[in-house]
């Protein structure tokens, strides 16, 4: 199984990188896009087969380490390899 953890800055947390990306995107003519936010995707694999158990464990890992829940939210997705 493949696990994907998506980490995003919480709403209301200033994202200067997102702002810089937006500025450059708009400069290149992509005026229809706004509110850019930069996040992270962390992917990893497991030999475990119990989907529910893997999800639970991955959420623990994300909560404890992969995301800083003071400023970030996370979402765990599981894909069959």
């Amino acid at each position: 199984m493949k696990v994907k953890v998506i980490v995003r800055l919480k709403k209301g947390v200033l994202d200067p990188q997102g702002k810089a990306i937006e500025k450059t995107a708009v400069k290149q003519g992509f005026r229809e896009f706004n509110n850019f936010r930069l996040g992270k995707i962390i992917e990893f694999q497991t030999d475990e087969t119990d989907r529910k158990a893997v999800l639970e464990k991955a959420e623990q890992l994300a909560d404890k380490f992969l995301a800083n829940t003071v400023i970030e939210n996370y979402e765990v997705q599981i894909e069959d390899a």
Binding site: V13, P16, V70
Partner: peptide, 9 residues
């Protein structure tokens, strides 16, 4: 709290 990227980048 946390320390974020500087406002100016």
């Amino acid at each position: 709290g946390a320390l974020l990227r500087n406002r100016s980048l």
